[in-house]
Amino acid sequence: MLKTVQGKAWSKYLLSLPPMAYLLIFFAAPTLIMLFASFRYSGEYGGLAPWLVQDGGQWTLDLTLENWQRLFGTDIYLRLFVKSIGYAVSTTVICMVMAYPLALMIARSGRKSRDLLLLLVILPFWSNFLVRIYAWMIIFSPMGALTRILNGTLDFFGLGPVTLMYSPPAMIVCLVYVHLPFMVLPLYANLEKHDPYLLDAAQDLGAGRWRRFWLITWPLSLPGITAGSILVFIPVLGMFAIPDLLGGTDGIMIGNVIKQQFMESRDWPFGSVLSMVLTVAAVAVVLLGSRMSRQRAGRGG
């Protein structure tokens, strides 16, 4: 390991304290404050009510479980979470199906073309997020060529016109589009490390093409798939812009309701409750994923 700064105990604090302090103030503290806010009352004009009130010369805590009771009191929010998880799972699976052949092709191509092929995957990912959503708004727009061709074809068979815009399928296409590179990159990093001799040996022993894939390539690529799935699933679960712009009334996700609580109905305590649930879900997915990869590593597979 390269020791960049030699010896000196203080250098450890000199290096780590500034970033640590910054992230404690602007990342850790806000998360805890939001946990606390989920037990507070809503302010009269939105925001939060004071949590400490003076009552006849005595200071009392003014906290409540109301917000959490509201979450569990109906099945609206449970259904919302289930729906969001459903959209996130669909997006992850479609990303996997699309990313696999691409990652495999890149991993098996020559050293020189690999860098270029990878750069081509990454470039659209670095173009602006909203621009990428906007592109699909053009494609799905009622006047766009896609909708007109589709409806022309449907009309030929005597079927009624459809709208693509503002529907869950349109939203899922865009979710896949935005998150696809997150699946391709870890999958490629994994596939690239596979030993080609394994496949040769299997072929010599008489295994056919699909058998070789299912018995060797696929199981070996599971860590890459796990990593990619986490990287796709978590941001999709918390998404609000894509459902907002493309999803219509059916394509509402948990992120939209959180945004609504903070920006429109201004019920911050309840918004905090939903945010905490999302936090727990995201942390659970990360822990589950790292546990799965550790177990596999433990088996030596």
Partner: peptide, 23 residues
């Protein structure tokens, strides 16, 4: 502290910072 902000959904950082700034 360094990796968690990258792994979390962005909306969480957005709303929690909003609460901090207003507080």
């Amino acid at each position: 502290l360094v990796l968690a902000p990258i792994a979390m959904p962005e909306i969480l950082m957005g709303v929690s910072l909003l609460v901090l700034f207003i507080m």
